[in-house]
Design a binder for these strands. Sequence first.
DNA 1: TATTGTTATACTCTATAACTATA
DNA 2: TATAGTTATAGAGTATAACAATA
Lengths: 147, 147
Amino acid sequence: MEDTKLATALVRLAHLVTRVYAEVSKEFELTPQQIQLLCMLLGGSTGMTEMSRALGLEKSSMTGLVDRAERRGVVVRVRDQRDRRACGIELTEQGREIAHDAHRKVTARVEGLIGEIDPGDRERLESVLVGIVRAPHVGRDLPQVAL
Amino acid sequence: MEDTKLATALVRLAHLVTRVYAEVSKEFELTPQQIQLLCMLLGGSTGMTEMSRALGLEKSSMTGLVDRAERRGVVVRVRDQRDRRACGIELTEQGREIAHDAHRKVTARVEGLIGEIDPGDRERLESVLVGIVRAPHVGRDLPQVAL
DNA sequence: TATTGTTATACTCTATAACTATA
DNA sequence: TATAGTTATAGAGTATAACAATA
């Protein structure tokens, strides 16, 4: 019988973080997916195909997501002049602001969840978690700044 | 400027866990929400109102969720004889099996993500996470066994 | 032919508002 | 009146399959 307490705690944590993420998104009157999109674009503009790969979605799902984000004025499609099939998705000024604010709010609230811990423990945990998230078999498709 | 690296790592880890959850759900040809519903019911049957509170959904959303789960044969509505407005939601035999299997798979894969880490680190991580998840201001509405 | 992106369609999830039936 | 749950409706997210335009 192997130990699963840590795994269970992580799953619950994931549910919590998801709620935090959802709450913050709602404050901006956007969906969690749209906020994730914006945060990812903080890492630089990309095309539809690359974004769908990074987010683990079908291209057709990206089309709808970007459609709605564009309608809300937080991103724009910019036609690529060299490859006229492609387009780059870029943050509008408002989109960039929201992305930064949302990023700050989410991390601040998650920090609030963590609360007071020993500075030494904090450093250890940090390096352990970063190790997990960065493991090659794990982070392959994870966007840099998708929060 | 406060430190947010730990929070960021936790958020990314949460995204990873969410993906694991989604992958496992797909293997059972159910949605993550349906799997969560089943796992929660492992803690005992309840009515629609209590479930919607526990999952943070509107009652009307629960109706649809339970409708679809019932159609798939993993839960059943059982009319309450004492209060004929109410009904209890119960796992079918198949539903219970899936709930157990999914729970096992998710925790196993999350364990896999964690991989080999120093036993001391593991304990520290565990105690920090359990502290977060159990904090009174946090876990209020979290179901016992919602995984 | 291969790739980029869109359209058409269908299903799931979710919320709000109005409703039914029972307490 | 208050509570348990449903129905009606609308919008968002997602996938699959078929398609258009460009490379």
